[in-house]
Design a protein around this nucleic acid. Structure first.
Lengths: 240, 240
DNA sequence: CCGCTTCTACTGGTATGACGAGTTGTGGCG
DNA sequence: CGCCACAACTCGTCATACCAGTAGAAGCGG
């Protein structure tokens, strides 16, 4: 049907090298920490110059697949979710800056995810978890006159709630999304005496979690985030 | 308290350059497509060699922030969620390969997200959406003897369900997570005549969505994914 | 014989210069 | 006025050289 619209664009050498290295990494069963061939050896093996090798290596390193240190050979990196999130942050900032529609959708997605984590938390919470949440709440209360600190505690609360599920993926996602949005609304989030409202809503969530009522917890979270989103929308300036 | 445990590691030149470029990109209000200074100009401006500039550029390019073409100057890239997901796939593959605990947590996270999208779909679906879902269901039924095609249709169904919310972020996430897991279980997912069961469960989800019953839709999705996860666990071989 | 220090060989990091190849805009020719 | 060829950019790649950091081997002292 479609007459093969594939654009015959010239592939960069480093792309080819990266692909081969990637295949070798995935096929060969290496464990994190295992060494890879040195740049010189690779340029001899593939018959390309050092720049091509270096660029490929650099890309793999920035993806978090390998780690290159100065005097040592490249090594397979240990997988780390937190580095992944950090790397994503740069890209998300770019996306959020230049595409207005994404921010609104990200807020909606956050509601979906965090109402889910609230449900899980209400089902799985232990007494230790509740104590931890109340402790975080108390700390946030103490920080109510320090906007930056207050916001940090706010993020801790949401991440901790997600963490009750014991699911690192979920808590990482919650944390990452919070950070992205905070970076865009650090001033808007807690302007002029809304700290009290935020704390009340957090307390309502904790109460529902303590009661072991998933639906009530989900609703409390939804109200909290919906209210917050409305405020975001109102003060629509991206700072920094 | 802690005696400043900051490790005074030598920063690479390209890191410094990358940081400055990043700042300049974020501060200066450029729009996608706008040109950045050429490599030669930058090496003159920062007083470093071309390799340092190139490595920094390369990293920004692999993050999707800028785009470098052969005869043209670097330009600010248009933000694209799909490229972001593709880039994530490489990293996630690495994480999933070398950390057994993440896969299980990813499955749980998927349940949280997709029960949420099912709820949304039940609330927001139009008659056109329902028609689309039923069409996808029919196509998947036709492909029940072609495992690869069947799995592709399966992903289409889940993504379409998430897409009913009109939220590109959610549908992208759903699609991405599905792809990651499919890559790890392409053989396990649809082994030996479970296509019929999958289709039945999909139909149950569609029925609940059609009825406009969010809780029933969420429960149907949860049952579907829980059942599927049990199968994943059973056939625990990562292929390829 | 063991432990510490030193030294050396190998590694990545950076600079320079050169050339090839692709893109873009300009100027001249028809 | 429109088309085309050329020129002036750009990135892509190579080769070479040297600096700097790491790690393991060799040597020393106990």
């Amino acid at each position: 049907m479609t007459p093969d619209a594939e654009p015959i664009r010239r592939r960069k050498l480093s792309d080819e090298v990266r692909e081969r290295l990637l295949a070798q990494i995935n096929e060969g069963d290496l464990r994190p920490g295992d060494p890879l061939p040195s740049e010189r050896e690779l340029m001899a093996r593939y018959g390309v110059g050092r720049p091509a090798i270096r660029e490929a290596m650099q890309q793999l390193a920035s993806l978090g697949l390998i780690v290159v240190r100065h005097g040592d050979r490249p090594r397979l990196a240990a997988p780390r979710l937190d580095l992944l999130a950090e790397q994503l942050a740069l890209t998300m900032r770019h996306v959020l800056t230049h595409d207005d529609t994404i921010l609104a959708q990200l807020k909606e997605a956050r509601i979906v995810i965090e109402t889910g984590t609230a449900r899980l938390a209400a089902q799985m919470r232990t007494s230790a978890d509740l104590e931890h949440l109340r402790d975080l709440l108390a700390r946030q209360l103490l920080a109510r006159h320090d906007p930056a600190e207050f916001m940090r505690r706010d993020g801790d609360f949401h991440a901790a709630l997600a963490g009750i599920s014991g699911n690192v993926v979920l808590s990482s996602v919650v944390r990452a999304v919070f950070d992205w949005m905070a970076r865009f609304h650090s001033r808007a989030v807690h302007s002029s005496g809304l700290e009290r409202l935020t704390l009340d809503e957090h307390e309502a969530i904790v109460a529902a979690v303590a009661a072991g009522d998933p639906e009530r917890a989900a609703r409390a979270m939804q109200d909290h985030l919906t209210r917050a989103n409305a405020l975001y929308r109102q003060a629509s300036v991206a700072d920094n």
